[in-house]
Each structure stands twice: as C-alpha cells, then as structure tokens.
C-alpha cells in the first residue's frame, strides 16, 4: 500500500488568543513572537490514518508539505511519527496561495511521485479553514474522494470507510486509488518515539521547486489564486462583558440567573 499524506506548517492554533495579531494594511497574520509553528493538527490526523494502515498491513508513507521557509524540525514530525519519506515543495513562488494554487501544486507533485493507492489530507487546515484542498486534488487528478473519514479498512483494490455525517456516520466503499480527507474522530495522532525522532534527524527531505513538478509560477502561490482576500479583521469583542457579582459565589449565581431573566435571554 503506497500512501501519500499532505501536511503543512502553520502558526500554532493552540497559542494564546491574545498573541494573535493582524497586520491590517498587508491583510496578513503576524506570526506570534516566541511561539513555534507546528504541523497543522488536522493534517496530523491524516498522518495518523496512514500510519494505522501501515501498522496493520505494511506499506510506504510519503508526506508532502508545501510552503516557503519550512522549519526542518517542524516539518520532519511525520518522519518522527513513522512516515518513510518527506517531500518539501519549497519556494517563494508557492507562498500566498489559496485552495486552488495549493491543490494544483500538490496534485502535480503527487503525479510526479506516481505510485499511490491512497492520498490523505486533513479535512481543512487550521489557518485558513478553507476545507477544499483534498477535494481539489481529487478533482485535478480525476480520483474518487471521500471526505470527513474516521475509519479506513483497505482490502482488495478497495477501501471500506466510515464517513462522519450530520446524523452519525455512513459506511462507504470506494475503489482505489482514492483521496481521503480525515476527521478528528480517527483518533489522537501518536507521539513520536525517541527512536523515531533520532531516525528523522538523520533523514533529509527531498526538496522540489516549481520546475521539478512542471508548474509555472503563474499557476501557483499568490499568482495562481482564484479567490481574492478583500479584508482580514478581528471581530471586536473586548469590553462588552457585563460582570454579575454577589456577596458570595452562591449569591452571584442567583444574581446571574435573575440578570439573564431580566434581559430576556431566558
């Protein structure tokens, strides 16, 4: 079983909300000081999904990450968790993309890798929460896709999947090769072992430039965008919280109930 997992480096979504700052002129997020970036947590579920299959029936797991200035210690995490290979699409030209330019570059890289049975993506990424790259790669490569998957059992050129729905879940059979986006219900991603970390240190990622995957600068990154960001803002919310007090916590509790009734929230 040949598996490819798409990952990326992001600003740590668990960083304190107060550290989150926007540059309103550039319509950009200012990376918080002293907070190290991480692998997108949604993508980590994808790594975990692939490694579960590798555990059960063997296979090769290749992680592919796209971006500029990728910190090796961060993006090597899938290797430390148990992936076999890491390919970095790394160039300034890849920067500033949207779902379109990202899916296109990843699809072309996957084409170059050539052999695959399952491609994994997170259900979305924690920065832009776009939720489209997985489906986009499948569309570009002409593959079947199943999204929001929480369980995968490949067998005989097919895979039996559980897909999370609004009502519960459904069991879906899909022909391979296919693309799967993974939901958090797949289970917590494993921690890298010491052995894994040591192994990852010795492994160098393969770096591909746009020309290596046969794409033009106009098709990727900021130039390849199909959607325009008009404005990025932080909704104002500070200072509107009305505090309800009391002589004791009990009294405050009762006062809060009275307050909610008074303002007809209840």
């Amino acid at each position: 079983m040949n598996m490819i997992v798409c990952i990326k480096q992001v600003i740590d979504p668990e960083a304190p909300p107060a550290s989150f700052k926007i540059d309103p002129v550039g319509n950009k997020v200012v990376p918080p000081q002293g907070v190290s970036p991480v692998i997108d947590p949604y993508a980590e579920y994808g790594v975990e999904a692939a490694l579960k299959i590798k555990d059960a029936q063997g296979g090769k797991v290749t992680a592919v990450s796209l971006g500029a200035n990728q910190l090796r210690d961060i993006v090597k995490k899938p290797l430390a968790m148990g992936a076999d290979e890491l390919i970095l699409l790394e160039d300034e030209a890849f920067d500033g993309g949207d779902s379109w330019s990202t899916a296109y570059a990843l699809a072309m890289a996957i084409k170059k890798i050539g052999e695959y049975d399952i491609i994994f993506c997170g259900r979305e990424a924690s920065d832009w929460n776009a939720g489209q790259v997985g489906s986009g790669i499948a569309e570009i490569l002409g593959l079947p896709s199943v999204t929001l998957v929480k369980k995968i059992e490949p067998a005989g050129g097919k895979a039996k999947l559980e897909r999370v729905t609004d009502e519960g879940y459904e069991v879906v059979e899909v022909s391979l090769p296919c693309l799967i986006t993974v939901s958090n219900e797949i289970g917590e991603p494993r921690y890298p072992t010491i052995k894994g970390i040591m192994g990852a240190k010795k492994k160098e990622p393969v770096v591909w430039k746009p020309a290596d995957i046969g794409v033009e600068a106009s098709q990727i990154g900021a130039q390849g965008r199909h959607i325009k960001l008009q404005k990025l803002f932080q909704p104002a919310r500070e200072g509107k919280c009305e505090m309800v007090a009391g002589e004791s916590p009990e009294e405050a509790g009762a006062n809060l109930a009275a307050k909610l009734r008074e303002v007809k929230v209840l």
Partner: peptide, 16 residues
C-alpha cells in the same frame, strides 16, 4: 467567514 480557527474573519470575493 471565520479563519484561523475563529481568531479572525476574512472577506473573500471571486470573479469567476
């Protein structure tokens, strides 16, 4: 729509 896990909101347009 909310982006960055709700830390910010973005306004997008598409001209296709």
């Amino acid at each position: 729509k909310p982006v960055y896990g709700g830390n910010a909101q973005a306004v997008f347009t598409t001209d296709s």
